[in-house]
Design a protein around this nucleic acid. Structure first.
Ligand SMILES: [Mn+2]
Ligand SMILES: [Mn+2]
Ligand SMILES: [Mn+2]
Ligand SMILES: [Mn+2]
Lengths: 220, 220
DNA sequence: AAAATTAATTAGGCTAAACTAAATAATTTG
DNA sequence: CAAATTATTTAGTTTAGCCTAATTAATTTT
């Protein structure tokens, strides 16, 4: 297996995410935005990743991640999410504090480390944000999930993940009392702006904007 | 607190160790050997570390670590050793497998991470090789310890640390049955080559060369 | 105390990963 | 469909961290 640098790993992960798991073609500009670098830097990196055969790159036409690239991206994501679980379950981090740290830990190179960590955590299937953890072969157990803002009046379901893992968003969810695993029901949907009134665990009613709801993923 | 790069952290740690915790002056050549880089690269790095005030550097006369440098070195060592404890106690690594991985983990930047890890581990005082773990203020509980080859006939004591943490040495100790915490007694010391016959835990007799004994540290 | 040896530094290069500015390709618009 | 706009790449710099070769400083030897 070809070895990638810290920066290359981050780019590959960015490409994997923007391509929606390999389905879509990714543009230089979008990637530069994702990576917080300039398009010129992205062009440089794409050439290198292409030489390492983890992406297919046609100048001016964007990139597609290869089979090998997908495999590697999934292993980085596996590490990231396992570390997130560790931080929350064992070190009592809150779910809005883990992303940054996992962003570093995911690059530690030691296959045995990640295997043992997985065992130690009891082979978790999902990370603290509800995202599935790929297994050692890169297999992902995907659950069908739908953004909350697409639900109709009286629809019910369970919060299983968040689309946005930023600290600001997660802390907002903490404040209003939304969490992974919560059972919800749409009490009212305002036509004018798409904002929602939600019943949580048959107890608490919370109001949220369409933008917030769009970042909450529901299993029906 | 000035922020150091990954490479700078490793150099500073190297300087700290070679200087015996700040007591000795360190030469460019010795450091280049320690870091497995060329003396020219060391000169470059010393200039940079000097600008960051973590070392006192007089050209051609070697370096001394500053107060600030010592503080930072101790925090890196703290992280290194806490991670080693984690790997052994929680992930069931053997003591000869942890050093390399800790060498990477020690650079993860997150004060809260290391504080929580310390709590999770129950504030351990020593790492798997018997080395003391500095506390968050850089205070180290040093035990008086003596290399085994300096003991006399019939002297007794307890193995509390190893000087060499290489996998080869540690696996050799595993094989002969020497471990941290073992009670030992010197049964015989051969004048000719300094090799030793040792009684371990009043049960097992083991023979070892002077070189091996010199890397085993005893609390009397 | 000069000569020889050893240690350390400087000079000049290389690569990775970023950048800005300029050039060029692709796409959209009148 | 030519012109304008937007996206992307290329060219040329920068910085960190390494290298080799050449130079210079310090130390040891005769
Ligand atoms: Mn990362
Ligand atoms: Mn996550
Ligand atoms: Mn290290
Ligand atoms: Mn250790």
């Amino acid at each position: 297996m070809i070895s990638l640098s810290y920066a290359e790993e981050n780019y590959l992960k960015g490409i994997y995410h923007l391509s929606d798991g390999g389905k879509k073609n990714v543009s230089t500009n979008d990637l530069s935005h994702e990576m917080k670098t300039k398009p010129a830097s992205v062009s440089d990196m794409l050439r290198k990743l292409s030489e390492k055969k983890v992406i297919d790159y046609r100048k001016y036409y964007g990139v597609n991640i290869t089979e090998e690239g997908t495999k590697q991206a999934l292993q980085i994501i596996r590490k990231h999410r396992l570390w997130e679980v560790f931080l929350v379950e064992k070190l009592h981090f809150s779910w809005d504090e883990v992303h940054e740290v996992a962003e570093e830990l995911e690059h530690v190179k030691s296959p045995i480390l990640i295997q043992r960590l997985d065992e130690f955590l009891g082979h978790p299937k999902y990370d603290p944000h509800g995202d599935p953890i790929p297994d050692e072969f890169g297999d992902v157990k995907a659950r069908p999930r739908m953004p909350l803002h697409e639900l109709k009046n009286n629809d019910t379901g369970q919060i299983v993940a968040v689309k946005d893992s930023s600290a600001a968003f997660l802390r907002y969810l903490d404040k209003v009392g939304a969490y992974i695993g919560a059972r919800i029901k749409v009490l009212d949907k305002v036509d004018f702006d798409g904002s929602l009134e939600i019943l949580v665990d048959n107890k608490k009613t919370i109001f949220m904007s369409k933008d917030v709801a769009a970042n909450i993923l529901i299993l029906q």
